[in-house]
């Protein structure tokens, strides 16, 4: 793999829309062309080179491209948007929409990601060593066909509405998640370390696994016995779990929720 390194300069306070940071976009360009890629902040258009020192080697195809962001980019949004192949490594934290509409390849964030990361993902992998914000792996407002493929792994915690409208793919949050994890979920797998409340709210399909505690379950979930070492698709989970079905606020709901017994 060939590597291009983006070393952050000063970030604008307005929020930097940098959807050009994608292996698909970089591949086949010269470093100078990459420096000149458009980025947006407020009502202004700038160049990627205004905000990053850029060096390294460019590959001819996205598959062969690796992009390293060498530090925190707490105001940069849309990293890896619609990316189909290759690898991006962020050696720090990034802001909103990391990996939105991603189709393939891998994004590794060593720090945290902001809200709406992994929005409407279709494939590939988003790996976050730190925490994720609200709406991890969500859909866009109003879009009932949410994330439908790929994998999101978060080592830390995540915010509200993880996997909202999830329609396929897998999300693993090893730490805790806030309210409404898996809200309106239809398909796919959501695994969380622990959850506060309203897990699986309005879900009609798919599976949620809670490896630790749930603070409070909705009254519209029904217990369906205990299961030892449940497996979902090709993932299996060790231990004894309480199984629930729901959300029976919805008619014909076929969602499954496993909560590990203490």
């Amino acid at each position: 793999m060939k590597e291009v390194v983006l070393t952050p300069k000063e970030q604008p306070s307005y929020g930097l829309i940098a959807e050009c940071i994608s292996c698909d976009v970089f591949a086949g360009k010269s470093i100078d062309e990459i420096k000149a890629l458009p980025v947006y902040y407020g009502n202004k258009q700038g160049e990627l080179g205004d905000f990053f020192e850029i060096s390294g080697e460019v590959a001819s195809s996205a598959e062969e491209q690796r992009i390293v962001i060498a530090g925190d980019v707490p105001k940069t949004r849309w990293i890896g948007k619609e990316m189909s192949a290759g690898e991006i490594v962020v050696k720090g934290s990034a802001e909103m929409y990391v990996g939105a509409w991603m189709r393939g390849g891998k994004i590794i964030v060593e720090g945290n990601v902001g809200a709406f990361s992994g929005m409407l993902m279709q494939g590939g992998e988003l790996y976050v060593k730190g925490n994720a914000g609200d709406y991890l792996g969500c859909s866009y407002r109003g879009e009932w066909r949410g994330m439908r493929g790929g994998t999101i792994i978060v080592e830390g915690n995540a915010g509200m509405e993880v996997g909202q409208n999830l329609n396929g793919g897998r999300i693993f949050v090893k730490g805790s998640v806030e309210s409404f994890a898996g809200v309106r979920m239809k398909k796919g797998l959501l695994v969380v370390g622990s959850a506060t409340d309203r897990v699986g709210a309005q879900m009609v399909g798919g599976t949620i696994v809670v490896l630790g505690n749930v603070l409070r379950l909705l009254p519209s979930f029904d217990p369906a016995g205990e299961v030892e070492n449940p497996s979902v698709a090709d993932e299996s989970f060790e231990g004894v779990f309480n199984k629930y079905t729901g959300d029976h606020a919805e008619r014909h709901a076929k969602g499954v929720l496993y909560v590990r017994k203490e």
Partner: peptide, 22 residues
């Protein structure tokens, strides 16, 4: 409120409520 609405929906849709109160 959300829990109460969920409980109401479950009942309206023909489900049974297990909890003594919501």
């Amino acid at each position: 409120d959300y829990e109460l609405i969920s409980a109401l929906r479950k009942v309206v849709n023909g489900g049974e409520l297990r909890e003594e109160s919501v």
